[in-house]
Design a protein around this nucleic acid. Structure first.
Lengths: 233, 233
DNA sequence: TAGTGGTCTAGACCACCTG
DNA sequence: AGGTGGTCTAGACCACTAC
């Protein structure tokens, strides 16, 4: 038993997770201190710290100075979803991607949009409507509003070939966003574009985007019937 | 300029993020090595490492040994959603929570469920139907199947007062799960329970849960019309 | 006020990957 | 083969907070 492999933070994390899941350490348990655990596992305190820090970020344990580390009773688990560009989603399905610009116009920002993005009065936005197809089947209808002031070059952009999402990603990547998922009923226009019956239930993703506090764009993406967003945790 | 405060990993992370967002380091840029950055920021390499590691986890940069750190061109951003218990969701709305057990029966697991959870042939499951109300308005219809073999004590549990979700959390916390969001159309039963018209579009969350590889439960939660799940990133 | 986690340091070794 | 990130160590100081 002299040939024990050295334990990494991942091994320690796995072991602690296992003890929590198997209720060796039930909810409410006060864990040994980092120093004590480091001694038990035969590693440095920094290694234990990293293992426990990540478990705390996931909400499984609660850490406070002086009090110590406690197994959380009612963990609020977090689910991570990867938000891809439509093209990627479709190509991941091994389907052929096609994009089409349905229409565009330059308008004053409507009230609901000003409220949504916190736009100043009198702001102008570029309003775009587009379709995304997978193997020529309707996949997603995209309606988008872009704040001219935040992205002046958008006035000269040509959206007949490249979608606004990909164009914006090239111009204004790494922005912050607020996302909402919901279910909506297909109206006449949506049912035509997505090739469904009126009244069909459709999955919708809305996203408002800011760059360093400045409103950039708001988009509504409505998916073909049957679309699901899934993940693990 | 001698009184510069020492930089922490958070300061470095903010600075790097800012340089990426402001396109000082545009997509594709090869960042200086950790050693070089540590010299520039006047800190240890471990500090730079932690700052960059977290940015890499978020998908903003791509790190490879020998090649170095590159600003990602098409970042796949991750959105985190907090998955709460219904009671919490309702109480967070300052509404009164009420739970009602609609029905329950012990059945052999249907084929689709066996496939979904990877249950062995001949497994028995407890099938539960419940309603959750916010201020006595229908909020969520819950249909759940619990694997008897994974949680034998479920046979003696009384679900007339406490919902199966909360009961399970107390018995089998910290399990792993697979979640899916979708939009569905209200059938006769759903429209009655949720007080909507038939054909209404409803938001649905499905979750399959395993504990250390063993299938525990599958649940379908269908929400009242207008329900949205939202988050930021 | 004392104990705990939060973080940083300086150094080291290793694994992976590109040239 | 060599350079880069991935990780660990042993020690240190600090900040928060329960007692």
């Amino acid at each position: 038993m002299a040939d024990e492999k050295r334990l990494g933070f991942q091994d320690i994390q796995d072991e602690v997770l296992s003890r929590i899941q198997s209720r060796i350490w039930p909810a409410g348990t006060l864990l040994p201190t980092e120093i004590e655990l480091a001694k038990q596992f035969g590693c440095a305190r920094a290694t234990v710290n990293r293992a426990l820090r990540e478990l705390a970020e996931q909400g499984l344990i609660d850490r406070k100075r002086k009090r110590g580390t406690i197994v959380n009773a009612a963990p609020v688990r977090q689910a991570k979803f990867e938000i891809e560009v439509v093209r990627q989603t479709i190509e991941d399905m091994n389907a052929q991607y096609r994009y089409s610009l349905v229409g565009q116009d330059l308008i004053g920002a409507p009230e609901w949009l000003r409220a949504q993005l916190n736009l100043p009065n009198g702001s102008d936005v570029l309003h775009l409507m587009c379709m995304h197809y997978a193997d020529n089947q309707p996949f997603q209808y995209e309606e988008r509003w872009i704040n001219i002031d935040a992205v002046p070059s958008v006035k000269d952009a040509d959206f007949s070939e490249i979608g606004p999402n990909e164009w914006l990603l090239a111009q204004v990547p790494f922005s912050n966003a607020e996302i909402a998922f919901s279910a909506i009923t297909a109206d006449a226009k949506l049912s035509e574009f997505l090739g469904t019956s009126q009244g069909a239930s459709l999955f919708r993703l809305e996203r408002a985007t800011w760059l360093q506090g400045r409103p950039v764009t708001f988009v509504r993406m409505t998916y073909q019937p049957g679309y699901k967003v899934s993940t693990r945790y």
